[in-house]
Each structure stands twice: as structure tokens, then as C-alpha cells.
């Protein structure tokens, strides 16, 4: 058991964990940040997507020892008032059904738009391919990404 210090949503967090504990379970079970979801445990569904220094990663595949000094942002840290342009676009397009995958979808969409402010449909498909939605909200996710791309505040 080792002691770790990570920056999560701008806050320094200290805790003890085995070095192979995936960031997902650190966030959920040690730090109480349950907005990041468990879906598959093998990086195949994107429900656990978070940002590491702005890079999109499925947190179930990142051992705590591999985080290093990179800053972690989870869905809870994306905005103070659920007013990130991507969240606002999601609300406008009425995207969510059961909602379980939406934190992962939103984190993926934010990374996409930061790298490519005006993605085509094909670019959206490629960027979102590893984030699954069993309710089938995909048509609205795509629309919401286009809507967020058009918003000036992004």
C-alpha cells in the first residue's frame, strides 16, 4: 500500500492505495466521486472517461501509479453550474435517457471539441466510437456536439 497525492478537479487529494488500483476505483470508492461510471472494466465502453491533462482516458485502464503529476478532471469538475457549453448543448438537445453513460459521453465530447472545434460527422463518429450508449442516444449526442461547436463560448 502506497500513499498518493493527485490533483482532482483542482483539489489536491491524498490517499493510500495499491499501485495497480485503477483511477476509476480511486475516484469512486476512495474519493467518493461517483459521477465517473463503471461499465466494463476493460476500456471498452467509455463510461469511466476522465481527462488527464486534457487527454481523454478510460479511467478503468489507468492504474493510480501511472497518473503521475497529471491533473485529473472528472464530470464533477467540468463546470461549477453545469454550464459548460457541451453540457448546455446536451440540455438543449434533450440527449439523456437513463443517463448512466452521459458523464463519459460529455467528457469525450469536450476533448473532441478542444482538439477540433468544428468536427464533421465522420470526425465525431471516430472520436466517440469508444463511448457506448445502450439507450441509443447517439443521434442526439451527435446533434449536441454540433450545437456546442456552434456556441461562441467554447
Amino acid at each position: 500500500m502506497a500513499r498518493w497525492s493527485l490533483t482532482v478537479n483542482g483539489k489536491q487529494q491524498e490517499f493510500e492505495a495499491e499501485s495497480d488500483m485503477p483511477l476509476l476505483w480511486v475516484l469512486r470508492d476512495l474519493l467518493g466521486l461517483t459521477g465517473t461510471k463503471f461499465g466494463c472494466g476493460v476500456g471498452a465502453c467509455g463510461a469511466c472517461n476522465v481527462h488527464l491533462d486534457g487527454e481523454l482516458v478510460p479511467s478503468c485502464t489507468v492504474p493510480v501509479s501511472a497518473v503521475g503529476g497529471r491533473k485529473i478532471v472528472t464530470i464533477e469538475g467540468l463546470s461549477d453550474k453545469t454550464d459548460h457549453p457541451v453540457q448546455k448543448a446536451w440540455l438543449e438537445e434533450k440527449v439523456s435517457q437513463c443517463g448512466y453513460c452521459q458523464p463519459g459521453q460529455i467528457m469525450a465530447a469536450v476533448t473532441l471539441l478542444e482538439n477540433n472545434p468544428h468536427p464533421s460527422d465522420a470526425e465525431i463518429d471516430a472520436a466517440m466510437a469508444r463511448t457506448l450508449c445502450r439507450c441509443g442516444a447517439y443521434p442526439r449526442i451527435r446533434k449536441a456536439i454540433h450545437r456546442a461547436a456552434k456556441s461562441e463560448s467554447l
Partner: peptide, 12 residues
């Protein structure tokens, strides 16, 4: 639950 679904606050 539209807003709660976007910020991780729904407790499943």
C-alpha cells in the same frame, strides 16, 4: 432529471 444527468449527480 435533465441537469443532474449532465454533472454526475444522479445517484444510481
Amino acid at each position: 432529471d435533465a441537469v443532474d444527468a449532465l454533472n454526475g449527480s444522479i445517484v444510481y
